[in-house]
Design a protein around this nucleic acid. Structure first.
Lengths: 157, 157
DNA sequence: TTGCTATAGTTGCATGCGCAAGTGTTGTAA
DNA sequence: TTACAACACTTGCGCATGCAACTATAGCAA
């Protein structure tokens, strides 16, 4: 078996390789749609989490998506600038903030949901419903198995 | 159903959301391992493709991984600098280059394969073999269904 | 030929991101 | 009460990346 055969086999059978391609494809699809709302992928992610849980601290937001503190901080700068969230004083701590969606923030929730639904539909358009369900179950299983150290950073590209 | 319930439902059931998390996790795992070889994720990807197929043009490399031309160009700058690939004159075109792995490039192939294998093993460590196979099949099906326009760029972050 | 369009690859510039260091606050223990 | 460590968050800086513009070559048609 030649090096090139081996390399081909390694790459083609690599689940990670395929996941990366799909993830990048999803990134671009999401970005196309988010551009209309002037949101980036990180700000979108933070906005969804704030809408989901209501008032919470930045550290809590970070834990929900494994996003480093500085990224949350910057995403909130942008969201606040756009008037979608507020940083209020925290009830019991003066170093933490209580992050809340504004009325404008809540107003865009339906559009965000629609975008997620569309991209998901597109993703699974080639699958039967049963396959799509099985796929989701496997993804959940993989996520649960991963050791999620508080995940301070480390990215790529 | 409140906005926050709806948002939670939308996000938690989102396959894209889960794929993104897994992809980022894989990114960081790969980067940890590639650091020892002084490779980035893009240079690693290009290197694997060159090893897999032997001499080819930059455009051909790009098509294999949906990577924009400028990214190939820069990845090759780095790989050439490290002595892993060469840009030779193309047999029939003076504007294209023939990209080839050097002896040093071929020499690191086993280490690259090992890294891919390790990361894959870790990824599927929570799955049965049958589940892992099914997962791979679903990924392939999704990739085949996606419309891969030559994919000039469009990323995120 | 000449001119036009498409292709192959490169690069300047601005933006975004990660790292590590910095500010201010809280807990805790001598 | 003072000192020190942990915590919550922010920010300066440098590197990587995306976009768009650029050079050079090839194909093609009049």
């Amino acid at each position: 078996m030649s090096i090139s055969d081996h390399t081909r086999g390694t790459r083609e059978s690599s689940l990670g390789w395929m996941i990366q391609r799909i993830a990048r494809h999803l990134d671009s699809r999401m970005n196309e749609r988010l551009a209309g709302l002037d949101l980036s992928l990180p700000t979108f992610a933070v906005m969804m989490i704030v809408l989901e849980r209501g008032p919470m601290t930045q550290t809590e937001i970070g834990k929900r998506f494994g996003m480093p503190a500085y990224a949350i901080s910057r995403a909130l700068d942008a969201l606040q600038e756009q008037g979608f969230v507020e940083r209020r004083a925290h009830a019991t701590s003066r170093r933490a903030h209580s992050i809340q969606a504004t009325a404008a923030g809540k107003a865009i929730a339906p559009r965000l949901h629609a975008i997620v639904a569309e991209v998901n539909a597109e993703l699974t358009s080639g699958l039967e419903q049963s396959e799509s369900d099985a796929f989701g179950a496997l993804l959940r299983k993989i996520l649960n198995a991963q050791t999620y150290a508080p995940t301070e950073g480390t990215r790529s590209q």
